[in-house]
């Protein structure tokens, strides 16, 4: 199914306050997409976790939040990109077994359980890009 982008907004993640901005933007798009309270909380939390990952682990980067449609459903797609060190032990991070002070811990594995689609591209020394999508329920 082709996904159409209805609206797109970009936010740089350069400071801690940007995490709150990303969250607010996610909240606004969830409301516009007709998400219920549970789906909306899941989306905002995912946004928060991913933005924190970009900020703490990637040393800052860019968030793109899009309102998308795939014909029948409305959704929100969020892309987080950084040029940080990459995630060396991706598999373990995704399993949720990581317990470093930087709190990669539950953030990544938990986010995966909150969204409908989760894709990650990470290269050592080059950076990490994570794309997550959440759809309205049908």
């Amino acid at each position: 199914m082709t996904v159409a982008v209805v609206a797109r907004e970009e936010l740089p993640i350069r400071s801690e306050e940007d995490l709150v901005r990303v969250r607010r933007l996610a909240r606004a798009l969830a409301q516009r997409g007709g998400f219920d309270a549970f789906a909306s909380a899941a989306l905002m939390t995912a946004a928060s976790e991913m933005a924190r990952n970009t900020w703490q682990h990637g040393g800052g980067g860019l968030a793109a939040i899009e309102e998308v449609r795939d014909g029948r459903r409305a959704g929100v797609r969020m892309t987080f990109a950084d040029r940080g060190p990459g995630i060396p032990d991706l598999e373990r991070v995704l399993r949720g077994g990581y317990s470093t002070a930087s709190s990669l811990g539950l953030g990544m594995s938990g986010t995966r359980r909150l969204v409908d689609e989760f894709a990650i591209d990470t290269r050592p020394g080059e950076g990490t890009t994570i794309v997550v999508t959440k759809w309205t329920r049908r």
Partner: peptide, 11 residues
């Protein structure tokens, strides 16, 4: 409720 559900779903 939605905060509780989200936290629990994340493990």
């Amino acid at each position: 409720p939605e905060v509780a559900a989200t936290l629990v779903r994340m493990g």
